[in-house]
Structure formats: structure tokens, C-alpha cells
């Protein structure tokens, strides 16, 4: 190996890296919020008794998750270029719609895991359907699916790196920029790898911690 390391470039271009990191966090955060909203909406549709509404959810899930994320982003950025959406917005749209399909599946399975009697009991106490879902079903479902949601969140953070392909100046994009400016290929990519690793680890650990601290609220129900 004749490669001589020069890690000083990382410090030299710290502003680029910081900007990229902030954009990655913003992108992921917005993507997460919209994916969660979409997933809750579609996951609820997937759980209702109306077959037609369930179809809407099924078609959404199967279409969105079987098309590569890159193509999702190209769709908004290139196919619908005449809308002149900023690249960042295209990335958020692509990420949310793609990841929303996975959230939908998780939400659906969470709702399915809450005993049907819970919803019926809530209706019986006079709660309207929406309130019954909001106060009785969702909180219990959320608790069940938090580990899966933590996994989806870390996946989404990693997926956000594809936004660099449509020129969103996030972390991966800045790594490329530093590489182009300095030719310190190895340092640039290894450093951002470690940044992603740290971000993903911290986010998933925090989310898992949140579940654990709320475990005490769970009532254990003996079956049969």
C-alpha cells in the first residue's frame, strides 16, 4: 500500500461536512415526518373493513416499495421537471412516498396486533371511531411496532444519501465535493461512512430507549 493518509482535509473542509450533515438530518427528519403521516393514513386504510379502501392501500404499498428510491427521486426531479420543484423537495417527496410504503405495512401489522375488542370497547363507551383509533388503538399499536419503526428510521437516514444524485448538498454529496477538490478519496468516504454510522446508531438507540422507558405502562393480558 503506497497510499499516504492525510486526514487534515477533513478539518480543512469541516464547513462543507457540517453543512452536508445538517442537510442530511433535515432531509431525514422531513422524510420521516411525511413518511409517518402517509404510513399512518395508508396503514389505517389497510385495516378498515371496506375492501375498496384496502385496495387503495395495497396498490400504494406494492407500487411505491417495488420501484427503486432513485427512480422515485428521478420522477419528481426529472419526469416532472416542469413543476420546477427544488431538488431538496424532490428528495423529500421521493423519500417519504418510498418509505411511507414500509411504514404502512408496519402500521397495518401494529393495528392488527391490537385485540379487536379494544376498538369495540372504545366505541361502546361512546367514543366516535376517530377518537377510538386516536386514543385507544394507535397508542397500543405504536408500542408494538416501535422497534420496526426504529429500523425504518435508520433505513431512511441511509436512504437519504441518494438525494446526492439529484444534487442535494447533503453529506454524501459533500464527500464527493471534498474528493473532487482534494483527491483524498479514502479519507472523505471513510469519514462520512463513520458519520452515517454514528447518526444511525444514535437514532436507533434513542428510539429503542424510548420504547423501553414506556414498557412499564403495558398491561399484560393473559390469553384464553
Amino acid at each position: 500500500m503506497n497510499y499516504s493518509f492525510d486526514w487534515s482535509v477533513i478539518w480543512e473542509y469541516r464547513e462543507l461536512i457540517t453543512r452536508g450533515f445538517i442537510n442530511t438530518v433535515l432531509l431525514s427528519l422531513l422524510g420521516l415526518i411525511f413518511a409517518a403521516l402517509l404510513g399512518i393514513l395508508m396503514g389505517t386504510l389497510a385495516s378498515v373493513s371496506s375492501r375498496r379502501l384496502r385496495w387503495i392501500a395495497t396498490i400504494y404499498v406494492e407500487t411505491a416499495r417495488n420501484i427503486p428510491l432513485l427512480i422515485h427521486m428521478y420522477f419528481w426531479y426529472i419526469a416532472l421537471a416542469y413543476l420546477r420543484l427544488p431538488a431538496f423537495a424532490c428528495a423529500v417527496l421521493g423519500l417519504s412516498i418510498y418509505s411511507g410504503a414500509y411504514v404502512t405495512e408496519v402500521v397495518r401489522s401494529g393495528i392488527a396486533a391490537v385485540p379487536r375488542g379494544q376498538y369495540a370497547a372504545a366505541l361502546a363507551t361512546g367514543l366516535p371511531p376517530f377518537a377510538a383509533m386516536r386514543h385507544v388503538v394507535y397508542p397500543q399499536a405504536l408500542k408494538i411496532v416501535t422497534p420496526s419503526l426504529a429500523g425504518l428510521a435508520s433505513q431512511l437516514i441511509k436512504d437519504s444519501s441518494l438525494a446526492s444524485v439529484i444534487a442535494v448538498a447533503e453529506l454524501t454529496y459533500e464527500a464527493g465535493a471534498i474528493e473532487g477538490l482534494t483527491f483524498r478519496t479514502f479519507e472523505a468516504y471513510i469519514f462520512v461512512s463513520l458519520l452515517y454510522l454514528a447518526l444511525v446508531t444514535i437514532v436507533s438507540q434513542v428510539l429503542m430507549l424510548l420504547t423501553r422507558s414506556r414498557k412499564s405502562e403495558t398491561i399484560s393480558v393473559s390469553e384464553g
Binding site: D159, T172, Y189, V200
Partner: peptide, 9 residues
């Protein structure tokens, strides 16, 4: 822990 794109790079 790292994105596919970065892994490819």
C-alpha cells in the same frame, strides 16, 4: 450502518 451509495463509492 452506512448508505448503499457510500458503500459503492
Amino acid at each position: 450502518g452506512i448508505p448503499l451509495l457510500v458503500f459503492l463509492f
